[in-house]
Design a protein around this nucleic acid. Structure first.
Lengths: 150, 150
DNA sequence: GTAGTGAGTAAAGCGGGTTGACTCACCTGT
DNA sequence: ACAGGTGAGTCAACCCGCTTTACTCACTAC
């Protein structure tokens, strides 16, 4: 017990493995809930758009990718019925990308799954506090985009 | 302070962001130390081979990729002078991939950087314990391969 | 010997991004 | 009024790292 190999494993690997396991479990449950056509990056898109939408260039900045890549993701989500491109209220060539009701339903399901998952892990309040401290000490005030990392 | 936005952030995102930040800092320091030609997966290869080498098929299993992908990685590291293919002592078509002195030097540098990085983060013993608990509860005894996730 | 097994390799394909070039709507200065 | 600049969007080409498919070859078992 005291010689658990994890005790001598680098912190970096512990973080990576923890993230990989939690994310894998989340993706599996979301997929089982009928969303096998969505990748984690699509969840990030939904989060970014859920308040009042955004242009795809704004979305690109949030996701930390080029605007072309963001455009491709929006194309795909539009084909699948999760977003629509509307004329932008401020005009120009801008288009406002907004979520459809299907996307809002997905957000509810994904949120529920995330909370169930977190609850099944026991008391994670200490872990949350420690991670928060770690993130603040490395990133300072401004949090970077969580790049698609899978 | 009590309304830190991170307090209401999903645990999954906290893990991902922590991992991304720590890994990014590690990669930046390793790169600055003269190893800009190496990706994290190469570090995983070095770890897997450092004791007594392995065949590329064994390496593939460790990394969680196909044997062709492992072969390509070995090709690249061989070109860069970090590994050699030797005849395998047990014969067959097997080849034993072993590290060159350059790779061992890299392992020393990377190890030192990891420990400096961890030390600069203050007391991470609680974080380590919590992560260990999380990983055990999701993965059980057998730890999965840490897939290249960047 | 002949058939099977398993390591290694060659080639093509693919997913998800980037780079570069372009169009078009709207400023802005003169 | 209109010439030039600016920024959003999009098309096309490319690239990287991995997978899939198909094969060659060394050895083993019958």
């Amino acid at each position: 017990m005291t010689d658990d190999p994890l005790a001598s494993t680098e912190l970096t690997f512990l973080l990576g493995m923890g993230f990989q396991l939690v994310l894998g479990e989340f993706v599996a449950r979301v997929s089982a809930a009928g969303y096998a056509d969505l990748r984690p990056v699509h969840g990030a898109v939904f989060q970014a758009l859920k308040r009042s939408g955004a242009t795809s260039s704004e979305l690109a900045a949030t996701l930390g990718v080029t605007k072309q890549a963001a455009g491709q993701i929006v194309d795909e989500l539009e084909r699948k019925g999760y977003v629509r491109r509307e004329p932008h209220p401020e005009g120009g060539r801008r288009k406002l990308v907004v979520l459809t009701p299907a996307a809002h339903r997905h957000l509810e399901v994904a949120g529920r799954i995330l909370h169930e998952l977190e609850a099944s892990l026991g008391d994670v309040s200490v872990l949350r506090a420690e991670l928060t401290r770690l993130i603040r000490s490395l990133a300072g005030e401004t949090l970077p985009a969580l790049r698609p990392v899978w």
